[in-house]
């Protein structure tokens, strides 16, 4: 086989490969492109038209958003979501890394049992806890506050993140903390000055996922929040769907896109961390 033929064959393979990948890409991107295009169309052209982007784009839908929903500016919903998302990130990072440190670096009695319990909660359907947790927070008069949505994050109930960090810390060389111990470092110092900085990749991955989870969360806010002023972006959008989705369909579509933006931005900024972090930690058994 001549070199030229090989190159030609490779070229053909490459074209086929890219064609396949582009076909998948089209399916994946269509809804996102659709929502961008639709948000620039007038109300009655949104559903029926096959044209992805309007020839005559309008910005009315976005200008409508500036009025907010029912006297509540959109910035309120974004502020609330941001508060919850950032609050969740802080809680998850602090509580999960403490637990993971204990699991990997401290030889305390009962460690195995607790670890098994923690793994058990990983597979537990959330819905079993939904009603009793609600009853608990209702009795404590904490419904319609952010506490029910945040408390679990500060108490490391997202077992997945504990597990992720355990996986990571387990692979840090043992010699490091032995050296630290010889230098007279206690556990807190070792945790704070040695282990945590080395765990940066795991911490970043956890932070991003926690943020996105909290941002997208729908059921928690739906159940616990009562006052529209405390609503998150998800609930604000749902309110839009219920209230104005008919008369102002375009506004609803524009709001859908705006609600997605933070997640998309996060994704574009951190996609390396997300994908590599998940893929590699997923394979270290």
């Amino acid at each position: 086989m001549s070199a030229l033929a090989t190159i030609r064959r490779r070229g053909a393979g490459s074209i086929a490969w890219h064609a396949g990948a582009l076909a998948v890409l089209a399916v994946v991107l269509y809804p996102v492109l659709w929502v961008i295009g639709a948000s620039l169309k007038p109300n009655d052209e949104i559903v029926g038209s096959l044209q992805l982007f309007p020839t005559d784009p309008i910005t009315d839908n976005y200008r409508h958003l500036a009025q907010g929903i029912a006297d509540i500016p959109l910035s309120t919903f974004f502020g609330n979501s941001l508060f919850l998302a950032v609050g969740s990130v802080v809680g998850v990072l602090a509580s999960s890394s403490l637990a993971a440190y204990a699991f990997t670096r401290i030889g305390f009695a009962g460690r195995g049992v607790l670890f098994t319990l923690m793994i058990g909660t990983l597979l537990l359907p959330y819905h079993v806890l939904l009603i009793p947790q609600y009853v608990l927070f209702q009795k404590l008069e904490l419904v319609n506050t952010y506490t029910p949505l945040l408390l679990g994050k500060y108490l490391a109930t997202d077992a997945f993140f504990v597990f992720l960090m355990v996986q990571f810390m387990r692979n840090l060389p043992k010699e490091l903390d032995e050296a630290a111990r010889l230098d007279g470092c206690g556990h807190l110092r070792t945790y704070w000055s040695i282990v945590l900085p080395l765990c940066r990749p795991a911490l970043i991955t956890s932070a991003i996922f926690t943020f996105i989870n909290a941002w997208n969360d729908f059921m928690g806010p739906l159940i616990y929040l009562n006052e529209p002023e405390k609503y998150t972006v998800s609930l604000g959008l749902k309110m839009f769907v219920d209230q104005d989705g008919v008369a102002n369909y375009g506004g609803m579509i524009a709001m859908s896109l705006v609600a997605l933006l933070p997640v998309l931005v996060f994704f574009l900024a951190f996609q390396r961390y997300l994908i590599d972090g998940m893929a590699t930690s997923g394979l270290k058994g």
């Binding site: 699991f103 990997t104 670096r105 401290i106 030889g107 305390f108 009695a109 460690r111 195995g112 670890f115 098994t116 793994i119 990983l122 959330y126 819905h127 997202d158 077992a159 997945f160 993140f161 597990f163 992720l164 355990v166 996986q167 810390m169 387990r170 692979n171 043992k174 903390d177 032995e178 111990r181 996922f209 996105i212 989870n213 997208n216 969360d217 729908f218 059921m219 928690g220 998940m278 893929a279 930690s281 997923g282 394979l283 270290k284 058994g285």
Partner: peptide, 29 residues
């Protein structure tokens, strides 16, 4: 966890869900 579909849960270890790592010797020894 919320029922939100994220890839997070999909990153379990392959193979046995091993117990905690070697740690610091443990109290027993």
């Amino acid at each position: 966890m919320t029922p939100v579909q994220t890839p997070t849960a999909a990153a379990l270890p392959t193979g046995d869900a091993a117990g905690p790592g070697p740690g610091r010797g443990g109290a027993a020894e």
